[in-house]
Nucleic acid binder design. Sequence first.
DNA 1: CATGAATGAGCATTCATTCAT
DNA 2: AATGAATGAATGCTCATTCAT
Lengths: 203, 203, 203, 203
Amino acid sequence: MAVAGRTKRQVLLEFRTTEILEAARTVFAQHGFAAATIDNIALTAGVAKGTVYLYFPSKRDLFLACLREGVLALHAELAAELRAASNCQARLHAFIAVRFQYFSRNRDFFRIYYTEFSQLVAGNAQPEFQDLYEQQAAVLESVLADGVQSGLFRPCDVPGTARLVYDLTRAALAQHILHPAAETPEIPIDSLYQFVLKGIGPS
Amino acid sequence: MAVAGRTKRQVLLEFRTTEILEAARTVFAQHGFAAATIDNIALTAGVAKGTVYLYFPSKRDLFLACLREGVLALHAELAAELRAASNCQARLHAFIAVRFQYFSRNRDFFRIYYTEFSQLVAGNAQPEFQDLYEQQAAVLESVLADGVQSGLFRPCDVPGTARLVYDLTRAALAQHILHPAAETPEIPIDSLYQFVLKGIGPS
Amino acid sequence: MAVAGRTKRQVLLEFRTTEILEAARTVFAQHGFAAATIDNIALTAGVAKGTVYLYFPSKRDLFLACLREGVLALHAELAAELRAASNCQARLHAFIAVRFQYFSRNRDFFRIYYTEFSQLVAGNAQPEFQDLYEQQAAVLESVLADGVQSGLFRPCDVPGTARLVYDLTRAALAQHILHPAAETPEIPIDSLYQFVLKGIGPS
Amino acid sequence: MAVAGRTKRQVLLEFRTTEILEAARTVFAQHGFAAATIDNIALTAGVAKGTVYLYFPSKRDLFLACLREGVLALHAELAAELRAASNCQARLHAFIAVRFQYFSRNRDFFRIYYTEFSQLVAGNAQPEFQDLYEQQAAVLESVLADGVQSGLFRPCDVPGTARLVYDLTRAALAQHILHPAAETPEIPIDSLYQFVLKGIGPS
DNA sequence: CATGAATGAGCATTCATTCAT
DNA sequence: AATGAATGAATGCTCATTCAT
């Protein structure tokens, strides 16, 4: 009973947390951080305003929780795919493909992610988010470093190029999410992969 | 006399406008649109709050004026360099170089530019800004199209690739502005240009 | 339980609404619409500024609510008295008497009512208020029409005369409220009624 | 020369004063006191904002000057007509007719007059205006008193009845100005006069 | 636990008034 | 005398946060 009680409590806690997080993601994506209101999020989540504060201490924290949750899920998917990839080129392809597919499935999250990323540029980002960002860059960096060592990629400034590729995929995604006409996420993936591999110079 | 009087007025008008615009750029860059306050901008500009409204009808208008001014100056510089370039590869290089150099010189403006750009992704951008954006993409597109036709670039989806390159430069700039350690803007330019031309694949 | 809960909420809602409405009436009567401030109203009501906006969406709405509430109460009293009156002359007397007595009891409201009425003249009145005004004029008109038909009143331009009498009572009330020396509302009522009936000409 | 110089100055002073006063009347009539702006008045008068303050020390003073000017002109016309009238009934008729005709010719002024009058009810009117008002009431009162004494009017509470008649004409005017359909000011005058004389009772 | 009424700091915007030219 | 740029106090309204029920 005691165990079941605690479990039930745990379940409810998680349920509410998820519920509010999802509502927040939707609202933040639609209006941006500043224009989103706790009222609107609570309404969307189907709870009272005060309830939001039982689960998240502040609006900013709620926003960051949205960000963290999405980024961690993305990282998990990416890690799985990278493990499954056989060589560096496959891992590079996986890096691009997973991000494309994940964000295509979670467009609301992408809007939040992209907006917050732009805060990085303004120098106002949360340290935690910056760390998550750096972490991903490091993953890609190691893929590139392996590739260069094994001769599958041509020698280059690995950290700089890693960031370049990282940023490029984000930028391409922004295009893709921005112009939802292209409903087929596969094509941009390969096209992007080819661009990264061969550039636009003459063969 | 009349001419002098009008000139004096004109001068004051321009002076104040510039003064306020510069203050606004600084404050918007530091805090973002929503968190910036007119009070703060006025204080920074060294004028009273009401004075700001003598020159700009609203906070939003002031923000857009910052954006417009910077974008137009950038476009002007770019147009001059493109005219001076001898062939498509030189023009592609100029496209990348001018943007890099302009934004390196105007970092506050870049923050505003980048943030507003992220609003494009959220679908909340001003039509005027979207037009300016599209216009630049079109410029790059024509450079690429010429290059493909003349064989200097390999055949590709020109509009898509143009956006890719466009977005890549912006993303690389974000990196560069974000990590101001690298005070030498020349290296990223060439490195970026090489990346665009040859990708990272093995030669 | 549910009923009690809902009732309690209902009670609080009505209590606060009334509380704010009364404060607003006082403040609007004292300063007029433009010079009244929400701050002052909130202070008078003993609530915070934001609370006012929980019950009324805007200053203008609050003002109109004051107006509406008072006018509707007046109309209700008038309707009851008119039903109780036996003939047209009695109804005319009731029309005058009820208005006199109601406004004597609600002087703050009269100030608001009278001020807003003057907006009618400037052509800036709310349509809703204009409707309420016209409605009352129509009531009096039907009293006069009946009276003319039954020979109790002499033939005349009924709509025009109705407005004349309507306006006259309002004007007389303004006098009465303005000079509160005469604390006996009965005398002006009969004196006014006699004036309406017989004018000032020689018998 | 000195005389001419002073005269020229005098002329200009009067010209500007009138110019601004007329503009103010128009703007106050259109927007009411609170919503009227000095900017708008200056623009309408064709002078700079600061110039208004050379002729009138404050917005409120400008408003009161509008009021005073119009009221004094009305009083002058009324005095002339009263002197020309042969007996009390003629003077009563003149009282009604002059006011009707004057305000019909000066509708903008009527709006200001009427609005300010409603301030009297709220107890916020300027003492000066109250005096002007009382003065007119006294004029009418003496007409009525004479009439009662000479048997042309039936005995009544003279002061109270004077105010009644006074207010009635103002109210009827409001109707007339409010519903400009009736472009013939003569009819309401006689109709009003008859009402005052005979009331609506059966003959 | 959940609620939602209440709070009040905060901000964009307006405009009467002043004063240097 | 005339101007109009500059001022800054004033105010309607919003919304994150708190807390009594």
